[in-house]
């Protein structure tokens, strides 16, 4: 008789080295130690808030999304599966999902101003000295985005930062839908090729 398949046990966080302050704060948070969440806030709140300010049209909405992000980290931390991604990826995904929810709620009330990726790329890279790998990956991402055409960058940015569908992007840019789809496809594939080039 064959034995049942092995259960997929949660893997330890890939950033679980004790010298990594983000991993240490995360593990404390997982033990329900409030100091862990406060430390995570210290380490990530400025970067998350900068991101949320880009996504959301008003400062108070960014504050709401930031608060909800940390509440969700605290409440959902037992569900984090290290095998599915890094701690930062998980936290930024929570922030992004929350901001998308708020955008959809608020879009009925206020038009969302678009910010552009060009200004984002032109700014100095944020300091993430405590996470050298993250810094390297962000530098690489900037470089790869810089290799795309401006149109390709713009459609990716509008989709991710502003939760726009391809139809909405086409209307906003005054371009045919087919052209927008083509920019998006080429932009995504170009980004993947560049990121995976050794």
């Amino acid at each position: 008789m064959a034995s049942p398949p092995e259960p997929a046990l949660p893997s330890p966080p890939p950033e679980g080295r004790s010298e990594d302050p983000l991993a240490a704060a995360f593990l404390a948070c997982r033990r329900q130690d409030p100091r862990g969440l406060e430390k995570l806030y210290e380490l990530l709140a400025p970067q998350l808030f900068g991101f949320l300010r880009r996504m959301l049209p008003r400062k108070d909405l960014a504050e709401e999304a930031l608060q909800d992000t940390f509440v969700n980290i605290w409440r959902r931390i037992e569900g984090y599966d290290g095998a599915r991604g890094e701690i930062r990826t998980w936290i930024f995904a929570i922030a992004h999902h929350r901001a998308v929810d708020i955008l959809r709620r608020e879009r009925r009330l206020v038009p969302t101003p678009d910010t552009d990726l060009e200004s984002l790329l032109a700014t100095a890279p944020p300091e993430t000295a405590h996470e050298p790998l993250a810094q390297l990956e962000e530098t690489r991402l900037r470089d790869c985005l810089g290799r795309l055409s401006q149109d390709q960058r713009r459609v990716l940015f509008l989709a991710y930062y502003h939760d726009r569908t391809q139809e909405e992007i086409a209307r906003r840019l005054g371009s045919p839908l087919g052209t927008v789809k083509s920019w998006m496809r080429r932009g995504l594939l170009g980004l993947r090729r560049c990121l995976e080039t050794p």
Partner: peptide, 17 residues
């Protein structure tokens, strides 16, 4: 998911109030 989280992290940090 990993790459788009990095895209999110490109935004200039801003201290929250």
């Amino acid at each position: 998911e990993h790459d788009f989280a990095r895209l999110a992290a490109l935004a200039t940090p801003e201290p929250p109030p």
